[in-house]
Structure formats: C-alpha cells, structure tokens
Amino acid sequence: MINLWLSLSAYGGLSTRRILETYQTAGIRFVELAIGPKPDPDTAEAIAAYRQCGFQYRAHHAFVWGDRHSPFNLSDDRIDWSSLQARIDWMATLGITAYSVHAGHYAWDGDRTLAYERFLQNLERLHFECYSAGITLGVETMYSPAEPRPYRYLLDSVESIHDFLQTLPAIKLVLDLAHLNIGYGNERSTLLSMLFAESDRLLEIHLSDNDGKQDLHSKITPETWWIPWCNSLPKQIPLILESRMNRKGSSFLRQEVERIQHWLQGGNERSQN
C-alpha cells in the first residue's frame, strides 16, 4: 500500500481546525503540518484534538503552529533557537518523528560559501536537537529559478546535493519532485537514479507539479514530468501530496487523493476518469 500523506499547504487559507475537519470528512488521516493554514491561537489545540481522533502527523519547516507564521532560514546567523527548540519539544509531545526543513537561502548576489557554512553548522545543531527528541530530520532539495529572485537556495543542483550527501552522512534528504522541474534540465533523471539507489538517505518525497519556472504546487497530471518514474519510487518512503486544492471541498480532496494513490500504485489516468 502506498504511504501517501497530505500536506496542510494543499488546503490553506482556513484555520488549522477547519482544514483538519475537511481532511477528516475526506477520510484523510495522515497529515504533514506546513505553511498554509491561517495562523490562529487555536492551532496547537486543534492539532492535538485531531490526534486524539486518530490523525498522524509529520512536520515541515516553519509550519503554522500558533497565532503567527514564523519563517526561518537555516543559512541565517541569527536563528531564534529558543523558538525552534520549543517547536521541537512540542512535536515530540505530539508523537511526531519526522521533521523536514528547507535548505538555507541567501541573497541573490550574496556569498554562497558563507551561506553554506552557516547552513551546515545550523543543520548539525538542529539535527542534534531533533535526534535528542526522537525526531528524524531531513533537508529538502531545492531549485534554482531562471529569473532573479531576492534570494537563492542551497541544494539547488545535482552537484550541491551530491556534495551535501557526502558532507553530512547522518542527515537525511527530502526529495521534492516538483523542485526538480525548475532549473535541473536533463540532470533531474541523473539525480533520481542517484537518490533511489541510496533510498535509506530519503526521509520523504514531496509531490506536486509546476510550470518549470516557479514552485506553484499545481495539480499532478499525466504530463507531469515524474509520472514515468512512479513505479521506481522507493516503496517504503512516505510520499507527501502538496498540490493546491484550496476551497475544492472534501469530496474533491478524497477523489484527488484516491486518483494519485491509484497512479502511484501503477494505475493509469484513463481508468480513473
């Protein structure tokens, strides 16, 4: 059976409680906490309440936790460690054992070497804190947009990902298949072969699509570039669906999750229509 989870970012714009209510109606119980819900003082209570109803959680980066969204950058030299520690402690009390974070970012024309050094230092500390709390940490593969942005990511190429795997062998990777659609060109297949051969290094795999330019989290279609790879995805690795379905309603959610599940199990689109 495919281990498919649904990110809270797939149904954002509402309070966490409303989203979890919708997921419950749609029969979805495996959820990744993420950016997307409207920050709300009730967030932590809602997450805990639905855990009592059988929900299981993973957590992603600066997931919405309280009454505001608090982003952080692992290449920053001024990380609020007390806040991050509180996040980790809370995850542990909730039984969360998998936490994925974005690779660090730095100014578009900034110093990549310095950003990478800080990133590695911060990551080692975060890894230690997570490990101590019984949580496995993973870092997400990012991308390099063609057009200038205010900042650019680390782990945005096959070479940088390969280098990371060698440098910090204790830390896992989170593979985002949609990110590989932005700026990787033909190398994305090389990367997939490399990562699937070392699947014990993968914490989870994120699924969505985009236009090749921006990380849009769009709907997965038969033309989505990684579809031909469905049968090669390592079976034991959790898959996280991140396509946006905001305001579509619970029955759409249910059908969409079933459609993707069917596909990942080797079915085809035609028989789902």
Partner: peptide, 11 residues
Amino acid sequence: EELDDYDDERT
C-alpha cells in the same frame, strides 16, 4: 485579494 496567501516559504 487574499492577504494570507502563501507559497512554500513565505506568506
């Protein structure tokens, strides 16, 4: 308009 929109990283 959606004042609380979000992408993977930022609102």
